[in-house]
C-alpha cells in the first residue's frame, strides 16, 4: 500500500465548496461562502453538535447535494471517474456480510482489478493494518474497533487522495484508536490528505495541522493548529477552547 501511495499522482489534491447552503424545515443548517481543504495534510473540523460538520463533509465528498452552491474536486465538479479518490470513514463502519478480506477485495474489484490482483492487494492492505489474523473472520463477528480498522484498510486500499473521517474513532477503544492514528499518519506521509471531524481535542492536536471551527452551520475560524490553539483572537474560538458551551 505504501509503495503505491508513494508513487501515485494526486488526482484530487484539494476540495472546495462555494456558496454552499443547506436548509431543512426553514432552518439554515449549512451556510458557507467558501471553504478550501487540502492545503494541510490533515484538517480537523471541530465544533459543537449540530454545527454542520458532518453535513459539510458529506456534501464535500459527494454523499449529499447542497440546496445551492457547488463542490469542486481539484477545480472541477465531482465525477464518477474520480469517485475512489475521495473516501469517507463513517462513525459506524459499514461492512458487507462477508469476511474482512472479502470486504476489501469487493472494494478493489470495483476499480476494475482482477480477482487475483485484488485479493493480493487486499491481503497486503490488511497486513499493513495488522489484521492478518482476522482476514477470514466474518466482518459481523469482529469487535467495533476491528470493524473500523477493516473499514480503514478498505478505504486506504483504494488509494484515495482525500479521506474524510466522520468521528471515525468515537466508538473505538483506545488501543484501536492508536493503531488507526498510526496508520493514518503513515498514509499521510505517503501523500494522503485527511479531513477529520472530531470531538477529541487530543486527537486533533496529535494529527491535524489545520483546524476549522464551525458553529451554527458557518465557519467561525480556519487556522493552522498552532494559531488556533495558542494565538486565536476569535472570541467564539476562545470560548470553545475554554470549554464553554456554544449555543
Amino acid at each position: 500500500m505504501a509503495d503505491g501511495q508513494a508513487a501515485r499522482q494526486s488526482v484530487v489534491s484539494s476540495i472546495e465548496g462555494e456558496m454552499l447552503q443547506i436548509r431543512r424545515g426553514g432552518r439554515m443548517l449549512l451556510d458557507l461562502p467558501s471553504i478550501s481543504l487540502g492545503r494541510a495534510a490533515c484538517t480537523a473540523i471541530v465544533g459543537p453538535n449540530g454545527a454542520g460538520k458532518s453535513l459539510l463533509i458529506r456534501t464535500l465528498c459527494g454523499l449529499m447535494a447542497a440546496d445551492s452552491g457547488r463542490v469542486l474536486w481539484a477545480g472541477s465538479a465531482p465525477d464518477a471517474a474520480r469517485r475512489h479518490q475521495v473516501g469517507l470513514l463513517l462513525q459506524r463502519p459499514v461492512l458487507l456480510r462477508r469476511s474482512a478480506l472479502q470486504n476489501v477485495v469487493y472494494a478493489l474489484r470495483l476499480t476494475g482489478m482482477t480477482a487475483q490482483e485484488s485479493k493480493s492487494l487486499a491481503i497486503g492492505a490488511l497486513q499493513d493494518a495488522g489484521l492478518e489474523t482476522i482476514m477470514e473472520v466474518p466482518a459481523q463477528r469482529l469487535s467495533g474497533g476491528e470493524q473500523q480498522r477493516v473499514a480503514l484498510a478498505r478505504a486506504l486500499a483504494l488509494k484515495p487522495d482525500m479521506l474524510f473521517l466522520d468521528e471515525a474513532t468515537a466508538n473505538v477503544d483506545p488501543a484501536s484508536t492508536l493503531v488507526i492514528e498510526q496508520q493514518l499518519s503513515v498514509a499521510m506521509q505517503s501523500g494522503l490528505r485527511l479531513v477529520m471531524v472530531s470531538h477529541d481535542v487530543g486527537q486533533v492536536r496529535r494529527l491535524a495541522q489545520e483546524v476549522v471551527l464551525m458553529h451554527n452551520g458557518r465557519i467561525v475560524e480556519q487556522s493552522p493548529c498552532e494559531v488556533f490553539f495558542n494565538q486565536t483572537n476569535n472570541p467564539v474560538s476562545r470560548r470553545w477552547l475554554a470549554g464553554e458551551l456554544l449555543v
Binding site: L63, R83, H84, L90, V94, L96, A107, L110
Partner: peptide, 24 residues
C-alpha cells in the same frame, strides 16, 4: 438503508448495487 452511503462512496450503482444487496 444500512448500505446506501457506503455503496455510494464506493461508486456502486445500478445493476451492481442490486446484485450486491441481493447477495448481502
Amino acid at each position: 438503508d444500512q448500505y446506501d452511503d457506503q455503496l455510494t462512496l464506493l461508486g456502486v450503482s445500478g445493476r451492481r448495487r442490486l446484485q450486491t444487496l441481493l447477495w448481502e
